[in-house]
Design a protein around this nucleic acid. Structure first.
Lengths: 160, 160
DNA sequence: AGAATACCCGAGTAAATTTGTCAACATTGG
DNA sequence: CCAATGTTGACAAATTTACTCGGGTATTCT
């Protein structure tokens, strides 16, 4: 697996927060249950996201977490890079270590890693939480366009 | 890092074999030294590549390894998938496990993983060992086009 | 034949990472 | 106050990585 559960759980959690954006803080417990993430573990992950400035917390009863920015201003890359670190196929294509690859301009495999890295970033930089929410709405509506609206809400609660 | 040393070492080794393609078997020791790979470890990796039908071996003195197919018929994907397994960002986008994602059509993060997977495959399926060799030759010639040919050979030995 | 060379195979393992768990504490709303 | 919730840091089992090692087998050269 290319991504660890950190990135996978983290994006799910952020998507969940996106769904509830503008409706007050969402408790950790709720995020964990709806997205099927171990609550104690999510605790650690969301702390990382908070320190990175992607979510903010409200302490105390009726507290919880909410997105720090609008869903259209948070990319998938923001979330994944925060939790996973750089998604480089090989260390030699990290900006911080460009000098460590002593024969950088001669290493042919390096150009392969660069192309992979670029293509990954094409995807994750170009996709925001809002895009994910839009996709989600679209799927929901095309599948249940003859059902009641409150049913839609109930279905949303079950999304992975 | 997205790839482990298996994939990274493996592609380097295959590239090295590509450089020597058509000139008889290359001993493991030579591959290991030129590509700076621990010889004992490479032994294991190349065994996997051999079982996958990507290289063949010639035993005995003056033996070694060579590509099973032409460099233009071996893709980067062939090598990486053999050594790393599927390069899926998440297990839910594996063909073998499509049913394990019980809410497959509803899981929005899954569509993100799918897009990443597709973009990675666009790169690795579309690139062969011959492409890498061509790139390598091009770099070599533009940098040393006024030097002797035997110097070129010596430089090749030093490539990572 | 015998030595050198090379591949083959399986066990072991130290270090790092992953994937959590747990407990105590701080803060807030009612 | 007290119940709900976030905050923090320590701990740890399980897995993976990245090898090392040792002995065995096969082939070729001289």
């Amino acid at each position: 697996m290319i991504l660890s559960t950190k990135g996978r759980y983290g994006l799910k959690a952020m998507f969940e927060l996106g769904l509830h954006h503008g409706t007050g803080p969402v408790p950790l417990k709720v995020i964990a249950e709806k997205q099927r993430i171990p609550e104690n573990y999510l605790e650690q992950l969301i702390a990382i996201l908070r320190k990175a400035g992607l979510v903010r917390s409200v302490r105390g009863a009726q507290g919880g977490y909410m997105l720090m920015k609008q869903p259209e201003n948070i990319t998938v890359a923001d979330v994944l890079l925060t939790l996973e670190g750089p998604l480089a196929p090989s260390e030699c294509v990290l900006e911080s270590e460009s000098s460590s690859c002593d024969n950088a301009e001669k290493c042919i495999t390096r150009t392969v890693w660069e192309k992979i890295l670029i293509s990954i970033h094409d995807v994750i930089d170009g996709m925001t939480l809002q895009d994910m929410i839009d996709d989600h709405q679209k799927i929901n509506h095309t599948e249940e366009n003859d059902q009641q609206e409150n049913q839609n809400v109930k279905e949303q609660e079950m999304m992975l």
